[in-house]
Amino acid sequence: MNKIFKLTLVLLLICAIVAGVLGVINELTYRRIEELTIQKTNTAYGAVLKAESYKELDKAALGLPAAIDKVNIDSVNEALDASGNVLGYVIVTTFSGAQGNITLASGVDSDFLCSGISVIEHSETSGLGAVAASTSQAGADWRAQFAGQGEDIALTKAGGQIDAISGATITSRTIAKAVSVSIQVAKEVAA
């Protein structure tokens, strides 16, 4: 019994030391991590719809469903200019791409046209589906197709306006669907 007690004590002591050290490191880093997260969201939002600030709306109060057409609605943000006028919305959605979940920010302007999109997180195939998120010219060109589109967005293969990324039809199609869902959501929120 005495032995078990001693072992537990040693283990507890070591855990306490480790936890203490981690606490100190956490204290030193968490502000910076928080700042970086905010900065990252603002950059992502800014890339799809330029505005002075963004205000997250309460989804439950708006009575929005959790998902439309298998596209989860993560957050709806009002884009505000310096004097607080609503310029449009930035809608963050998560949906299943070809390899895993894709998190996408779509900007919708006051005319309910898409102002731009940005992939926040994804695990698509490098060189194929990942083009949608890449900072390369090809990626930027592909994303630029969405600007100015209205609610019915589809791939050219399905009679729409968006050229699919070659070798990544599934990624392209799911993103197109998410953008049209985002525009629907923006219309509902505005109404």
Binding site: L7, V10, L11, I14, C15, V18, V21, L22, I25, N26, T29, Y30, R32, I33, L36
Partner: peptide
């Protein structure tokens, strides 16, 4: 008797430190 548990705690500690530093 509890060396493995202690190793794991020490390792987890260092991993979390590196994780936090990388995030920051």
């Amino acid at each position: 008797e509890i060396r493995l548990a202690i190793f794991v705690v020490v390792i987890a500690g260092f991993v979390t430190i590196v994780d936090l530093l990388l995030q920051a």
